[in-house]
Design a protein around this nucleic acid. Structure first.
Lengths: 175, 175
DNA sequence: GGTTTTGAGTTGCAACTAGAAACTGAAATC
DNA sequence: GATTTCAGTTTCTAGTTGCAACTCAAAACC
């Protein structure tokens, strides 16, 4: 459970990663950049819910797990819930924000499979409807066609072409 | 749980993250899971090439930068090249493997913008062709339609439906 | 009702890692 | 030849990780 701000045996007395040019990456890394965070997230996606279960699945030290879980809860990626049937048990569940990390996690995982593992891994993530494996995570243009890194440029927000389908002062989503 | 006894001033004497169930994520994290790796990658994507340039852009300590760059080179994500005109200068450039991390980086970045920053960041990554912002990184079925996490299941490799367009023993890519 | 077990943490300690600043050594510049 | 610059090392301190042992409350057992 929560460490207080003042005397914190394992706290984040660390300078936040410099937020150059107002980029979302440092913020994302602030929440997910620590050694075990992605592995915990992966376990959570695999329906791991309880402290001892994470402990066993990941082979992480108890104090680190405790700290990482608290951090993920603070960041709104997991939520803590007491079980109804056993008041001692605490369930850690993904929030919407947590689920939304799935594309990032899969992109990383696919990269690892392609370049490090060399072989497709075994539990394969599939489309529920037809049981076919999902496609690779790629970058796509607004119209949906895949882009590779030669076809990309960084533009100042002022120079970005408006979405022709957008009406007036519609807020652009991301990227 | 072996730390090696060799004397390595800042080496990776750490146990590899446990590779549960033959997953690509631990391998990916082995290469990219350290504190500054993604920020260095981001800088590299922004055409930062030289040691002092990284130093200035990131505000990282020299020794850590030196170590991270070496590590990224070892992992084949960056390559080191001596400049022709100035033999002292070393250029760090992304390899194909490094470029291939772009989807993962963007997914993370987009997540950070959406959930942490709240506001779209400024240099916007755009399609070179029409100068429109790229679309969000999402998970797609084999046929290209976007999937959300309710429409996904993990299947054993043996139970994955074959791609109907694939002829015989075609190797599936990833997922 | 009292003892034991279990879930989820804390605490203490030793080993490891990050960071700031000073130092090195070779190549370029004056 | 003296100075500056680039890319690292080294040193030393502060912060992190991991293991093992401890706590503390809520079930389970007897």
């Amino acid at each position: 459970m929560g460490y207080r701000e003042d005397e914190d045996p394992m706290g984040k007395l660390r300078e936040p990663l410099r937020e150059i040019a107002q980029c979302g990456l440092p913020s994302a890394l602030e929440a997910m950049g620590e050694r075990w965070s992605f592995m915990i997230l992966r376990a959570a996606f695999n329906k791991v819910r309880h402290f001892e279960e994470f402990l066993e699945q990941l082979g992480i030290a108890r104090n680190i797990l405790s700290n990482r879980l608290s951090r993920l809860v603070e960041n709104g990626i997991l939520k803590r819930e007491h079980c109804a049937d056993d008041r001692r048990r605490i369930e850690y569940r993904l929030t919407e924000k947590g689920f939304d990390l799935l594309p990032a996690m899969l992109a990383l995982r696919q990269w690892g499979e392609k370049w490090e593992l060399g072989t497709p891994a075994n539990p394969v993530l599939c489309d529920d409807r037809d049981h076919r494996a999902i496609g690779p995570i790629v970058i796509r243009a607004a119209d949906g066609r895949p882009l590779d890194h030669h076809e990309l440029t960084w533009l100042d927000r002022a120079d970005v072409a408006a979405d022709p389908n957008a009406s007036g002062a519609k807020v652009r989503k991301i990227a």
